[in-house]
Nucleic acid binder design. Structure first.
Length: 501
RNA sequence: GUCCCCAUCGUCCAGAGGCCUAGGACGCGGCCCUUUCAAGGCUGAAACCCGGGUUCGAAUCCCGGUGGGGACGCCA
C-alpha cells in the first residue's frame, strides 16, 4: 500500500490539508504501507521553497514521518514536480502520438469569452473543442512557426459514455463523459497542468491509494480517462469531506486560525491537533475520543470515514489540548512555555536555576489553561507585581470588612517571618495572621491573595505564594527580579493605609 | 446554469430495519468540591431536514423535494 500527500507550496499548511495528510499517514502507518510526500509546485508564480519547507516542518511537528519524498529521496524521485518536467514532456508526447492529445491554440481571452457565453446560455462552461479537429500537420506547422500552443487531452467517446469508479469512502460515483471538456494537460509554456501531472506522478510512483479532499472528486473521471489512455491501472480513490468554519463556509482566515502554524504558535500541542483532526469525520469507536496517534493508526479505516463535511470546533480542540497538557511531564511544559515567557520579557536565559525555578511554577499554571500561550498570563502575578496597580485594580475589594486588619497583620507577620518557600511555611504564616485578626476562610485568604498576587483570582495560594518566594530568592539574572512576599505585603499595606478610611 | 457529493442535538461522532422513550463528546445551564478563577465530579436542556413509498416494523432501504458543499481554470 503506497499513499501520498501532495501539497502545493503556496502558503501555510491548512488544517484541512493537514487532516488529509493525517488520514493518509494513519492508513499507511496502520497497514504497514508507505507514506510519500510529493510537492506539486507547477504553479510557478505562487510556489515558494519557503512554503515547502514550512509545510514539511509542520508535518513533522504533527508527528508524521515519511521514508520516501521530497526531502528524503527514494527510488521514484524526484518528488518535486518542477524537477520532473522532462517526464511530463515525454508522456505528453506519447499521448500526442497515440492521438489522445492535441495542440490547442485558443488564447486565454478566447477561452474566457467561451466560458461566459456558455454560462450565459445556461450550458456547462467546458472547452468548446475549437482546436480538437485541426489536422495534425497543420497544428505542427503552426507550432513550428512559433505560435503558442497548449496541449489538451481528447476525451474519448464523449457521447453516451460513463466514467464510473468505486470511491473507498463514498461508494460508486459516476460521471457522464459528455460533461467533461477536453482538459488542458500542458500549458503553452510547457508546464504541465495539475490533472496531468498527478496522474503521471501517481502512476510512476506506484501510488495504490489516492486519499484526498472532496474538492477533487470531479477531477477523478478526467484522471481515470488519462490512466486509460496510457494503459495504466488506476489507483483506488477515496475522497474525504472538507473542513468548514462555523458558518458552514470553507474554513478561512475570517474564522480565525486556519493553518497548522497558527495553532502551533498559539500553544496547541501536536498530539492534540492530530487527535482532534482525526475526530472530524471519523471516530475511533467505543465512545473514545482521546486517542494517541499510534492508536489512531491502529484503528483507522477508510470505510469508517464519514461522508459529510465537518465544522472545525476550536472549543473542542481546546478541550483535547487541555487533556494532553495535563498528561505532559513538567519538563516538557517548561520547555514549551519558555518561548512565551521570553516574549513577555520575564525570562531572558535558560540557565539551570531558571529552569529549575520554572519547573516549580509552569506546570501548575499549565493545568488550568487551554493553551501554552496562556501560561504567562496565568503567571503574571509572579513576574509582574506592583502594589499600586494591585490596589487600583482591587480598591473595592480591599474595603470588605476585616480586609484592612488582615492586610496589616500580614505585613506585620511577614516582616519577621522566614520566606514562605513552601506550602507549610505559607500555611503557618497564614495561620498566625488568622490568630492575630480572628478572620478565617474567605475573609482571611482573599485579602492575602490581593496583597500578595495583586489579583482577585489565580492559582491556589499554596502554590502561588511559594512560587513568588522561590522566585524572589533566585539570584539568577536570567529572570525578571521577583518581588518577595514581604515587600509585597509591606507596600500593599502602606498603600491601603493611605486610602481614605 | 450543468454535473457531482452530502444531510442524527448549536458542533463532532455512535447508530449498518426491530436492542432507539436515539447513545457519547465539546459547548451551554444547574449542583457539588473549594480561601478565588480555572480544573475536576455529578446532573439537566438539546437532534433523526420535508414529503412520498417499501415493510408487520424505518433515523436506518428507495424516490422526489428542500437545504448545504464541491466542480466546471494555461489554480491545485
Amino acid at each position: 500500500m503506497r499513499l501520498r500527500f501532495a501539497p502545493s507550496p503556496t502558503g501555510q499548511l491548512h488544517v484541512g490539508n493537514a487532516r488529509t495528510a493525517l488520514f493518509n499517514w494513519l492508513l499507511a502507518r496502520g497497514q504497514g504501507g508507505t507514506f510519500i510526500v510529493r510537492i506539486e509546485d507547477t504553479d510557478v508564480e505562487r510556489s515558494t521553497r519557503e512554503s515547502e519547507l514550512a509545510m514539511l516542518d509542520d508535518l513533522r511537528w504533527m508527528g508524521l514521518d515519511w521514508t520516501e519524498g521530497v526531502d528524503v529521496g527514494g527510488e521514484h524521485g524526484p518528488y518535486r514536480q518542477s524537477e520532473r518536467l522532462h517526464i511530463y514532456r515525454a508522456h505528453a508526447i506519447e499521448l500526442m502520438s497515440k492521438g489522445h492529445a492535441y495542440y490547442c491554440f485558443c488564447s486565454a481571452q478566447q477561452l474566457e469569452a467561451d466560458r461566459q457565453a456558455a454560462l450565459g446560455a445556461g450550458r456547462p462552461p467546458q472547452y468548446v473543442g475549437r482546436c480538437r479537429n485541426i489536422p495534425r500537420d497543420e497544428s505542427r506547422r503552426r507550432v513550428e512557426a512559433g505560435e503558442p500552443a497548449a496541449i489538451r487531452f481528447r476525451v474519448p467517446d464523449r457521447q453516451g459514455r460513463e466514467v464510473v469508479f468505486h470511491d473507498l469512502v463514498r461508494g460508486e460515483v459516476r460521471f457522464a463523459a459528455e460533461v467533461i471538456g477536453d482538459p488542458l494537460i500542458v500549458r503553452s509554456g510547457g508546464v504541465p497542468a495539475y490533472n496531468f501531472a498527478v496522474v503521471v506522478d501517481d502512476a510512476l510512483m506506484e501510488i495504490t491509494h489516492v486519499v484526498r479532499g472532496e474538492d477533487h472528486i470531479s477531477n477523478t473521471p478526467r484522471q481515470l480517462l488519462l490512466y486509460e489512455a496510457f494503459g495504466w491501472q488506476p489507483p483506488a480513490f477515496a475522497h474525504v469531506s472538507l473542513v468548514l468554519g462555523p458558518d458552514h463556509a470553507p474554513l478561512s482566515k475570517r474564522h480565525g486560525a486556519t493553518s497548522v502554524k497558527e495553532f502551533r504558535d498559539r500553544g496547541f500541542l501536536p498530539e492534540a491537533l492530530t487527535n482532534y483532526l482525526a475526530l472530524i469525520g471519523w471516530s475511533p469507536g467505543e465512545g473514545q475520543e482521546l486517542v494517541p496517534l499510534e492508536e489512531l493508526a491502529r484503528r483507522f479505516r477508510l470505510e469508517d470515514v464519514g461522508h459529510s463535511a465537518g465544522v472545525f470546533d476550536v472549543e473542542k480542540l481546546a478541550w483535547v489540548n487541555r487533556h494532553y497538557l495535563k498528561a505532559s511531564p513538567p519538563q516538557r511544559l517548561v520547555e514549551l512555555a519558555i518561548p512565551y515567557l521570553q516574549r513577555a520579557g520575564w525570562v531572558s536565559n535558560t540557565s539551570p536555576d531558571v529552569v529549575e525555578f520554572l519547573t516549580h511554577v509552569v506546570p501548575a499554571a499549565a493545568m488550568s489553561v487551554d493553551r501554552v500561550e496562556q501560561v504567562p498570563a496565568r503567571l503574571s502575578f509572579v513576574f509582574d507585581y506592583a502594589a499600586a496597580r494591585a490596589l487600583d485594580d482591587n480598591a473595592i475589594r480591599v474595603e470588605a470588612k476585616g480586609s484592612r486588619t488582615v492586610i496589616d497583620a500580614l505585613a506585620e507577620e511577614l516582616r519577621t517571618a522566614p520566606p514562605l518557600v513552601d506550602r507549610e511555611t505559607f500555611r503557618a504564616a497564614a495561620s498566625r495572621v488568622k490568630d492575630r485578626t480572628g478572620q478565617k476562610g474567605k475573609a482571611l485568604f482573599h485579602p492575602i491573595r490581593l496583597a500578595l498576587t495583586g489579583a482577585a483570582e489565580g492559582l491556589e495560594l499554596d502554590i502561588a505564594v511559594p512560587a513568588i518566594e522561590r522566585g524572589a530568592l533566585l539570584r539568577s539574572t536570567g529572570i525578571t527580579r521577583i518581588i518577595s512576599a514581604r515587600e509585597r505585603a509591606a507596600a500593599f499595606a502602606e498603600g491601603v493605609a493611605a486610602l481614605e478610611p
